[in-house]
Design a protein around this nucleic acid. Structure first.
Ligand code: MN
Ligand code: MN
Ligand code: MN
Ligand code: MN
Lengths: 217, 217
DNA sequence: AAATGATTTTAGGTTCAACTAAATATCAAT
DNA sequence: ATTGATATTTAGTTGAACCTAAAATCATTT
C-alpha cells in the first residue's frame, strides 16, 4: 500500500511534469516543503518501487505506473472538491485543503459512490478536468489571462486552486467558471490588468492574472 | 496534533471503559492488533501527553482530556457513517471501515458541514448515539438480545458495528433499528434463539444475539 | 582548463510506531 | 509462603520520513 507521503510526492512530480517543468530535487523540495536531502531519500525509494525513473543529478520522471497513480490521486482529489461544493455547500476557496487529506483515505467504493452521486462530473470547481477511472485525462488548451492584451474578450476555463486567498478574491470580482471577461487595459511595466466583468471594471494584479486561465471567445 | 495511531488508541481505550472492562495492555493489544510491547510503549507516551493515567502493571484510564478526545473522534466517526448512508447510499455494513479512516482527516469545518447537512442527527446507522460538539453523550440503557427469554417482545435500539458480516446477516433477517422482535425459543445449552420479526421466524446464533441490543416493549 | 557558485547527494542523526525475545511482576492455587 | 501460569515491561531492532552538515557533482564563467 502507498502512504500519504508517497502519494503527495507522486502528485507533486506529476504537477511539475504537466506544467512542462523538470522534476528536480530542489523544485520538489520547495513544492513539498521538505529539505532537499529528504527528496533524494524518497525518490530512491520511489524509483525502487518502479514509480519513477531516477538518475543521480538528473531529476526524475514518472513511469507509466507512476502516472497512473498520480491520475488516481488527482481523480479522488477533484471528485472530493466537487462533492464538497455540491453536497456540503463549500465555497471553492475552502475545498482544496480538505481534499488534500481526503484524497488519501478514499477506497475504490467511496470514489465510485461520490462519482455516482455527482453524476460523473468531468471537471472540478476550479475548472480542472477529472481523470476517468481508467486514467484518461482530456486536456483542453487554455492560456493565462496575464498573456492577453487590451481588447481581448475571453471566457474563464480554470482558476488555480493552490492559493485560497486568490480564489476568494477572484470570486469577489465576479470571476467564476465560464465568466466572460473583457481586457480593458494592460500595464506594460508590471503586467497588471483592468478587466470588465458584467458591468463592472476591476483592477487585477499580475499574480492574479497568472492564476486565471481562459480561452478567446 | 494527534496522529492516527494516537486517535485509534484513545478510541480503543474509551470503548473498553464504556463496556465496563478494564483497559489492560493485553485487551488493547488484541483490540488494536498490535503486540503487547507496542501498547506499553504507546501508553507511556499518551500518559506523558496527559491523555490517560498509567501505573505500571495496572492498566490505564483516560483523563478528562482523553475522554474529550475520544468523544470527538467518535462524533466524527458516527457522523461519517450517517452521512455515507444518507448521502451516498451506503448500506450499514459498509460504513464502519470507511469511517474508521475518514474520522482522522476531518476538520472542525467539515465536521460541522456534515452535521448540518444531516440536520444534526443524534444517532448513527447502528443506533449508537452521536456525541455533541461540546462532548455530551446521553447513553440509553439497553440489553443484549441474548439476555432475553422466550416470550419477550423487544425493540432494536442498536446493533454492534464491529463485524460487517453480522450486520449484513442481521439486515437479511429484517433486523433494523426499531424493528420489533419476539423471542420464541431459547436454547439453554448454547444460548441461540428463535425469533419472530414481522411474520417470519428466524434462527439466531448466540454470537448474533450478543450483537443486537434492545429494550423491552 | 580552472575556478566558482548552485544543486544534489551522502553521512549521520532523530522521532514515531511497530516488532521479537528476554526479564520481571502479578495473581491464583497449592 | 512457594510455585507456576499469565500478564506486562524492558531491551534492543527495524523501517518510514524527516532533519543538518559536509562532500560531491554540475554548469557557467573567466
Ligand atoms: Mn495530499
Ligand atoms: Mn481543484
Ligand atoms: Mn480509525
Ligand atoms: Mn456505528
Amino acid at each position: 500500500m502507498s502512504t500519504i507521503s508517497t502519494e503527495d510526492y507522486i502528485k507533486a512530480i506529476y504537477k511539475l511534469e504537466v506544467r512542462g517543468e523538470k522534476a528536480t530535487t530542489s523544485a520538489l523540495a520547495s513544492q513539498l516543503g521538505v529539505a532537499d536531502a529528504s527528496i533524494t531519500d524518497m525518490i530512491k525509494k520511489l524509483s525502487d518501487k518502479g514509480l519513477l525513473h531516477y538518475e543521480r543529478y538528473q531529476g526524475v520522471e514518472l513511469t507509466q505506473q507512476g502516472v497512473k497513480m498520480a491520475l488516481g490521486i488527482l481523480r479522488r482529489h477533484r471528485l472530493w472538491e466537487m462533492f464538497l461544493v455540491e453536497f456540503l455547500a463549500y465555497s471553492w476557496d475552502k475545498v482544496h485543503d480538505e481534499a488534500e487529506r481526503l484524497e488519501h483515505v478514499t477506497s475504490a467504493e467511496l470514489e465510485h459512490a461520490i462519482d455516482t452521486a455527482l453524476g460523473h462530473p468531468t471537471g472540478d470547481p476550479h475548472g480542472d478536468e477529472i481523470p476517468t477511472v481508467d486514467g484518461k485525462l482530456p486536456n483542453r488548451s487554455c492560456t493565462a489571462l496575464a498573456a492577453h492584451e487590451a481588447g481581448d474578450v475571453v471566457r474563464v476555463l480554470r482558476v488555480s486552486d493552490e492559493d485560497s486567498a486568490i480564489l476568494q478574491h477572484a470570486a469577489s470580482l465576479g470571476v467564476a467558471l465560464n465568466s466572460r471577461i473583457t481586457v480593458k487595459q494592460k500595464m506594460p511595466f508590471d503586467g497588471s490588468l483592468t478587466i470588465k466583468i458584467g458591468k463592472k471594471e476591476h483592477f487585477v494584479s499580475r499574480q492574479v492574472a497568472d492564476s486565471i486561465f481562459v480561452e478567446r471567445v
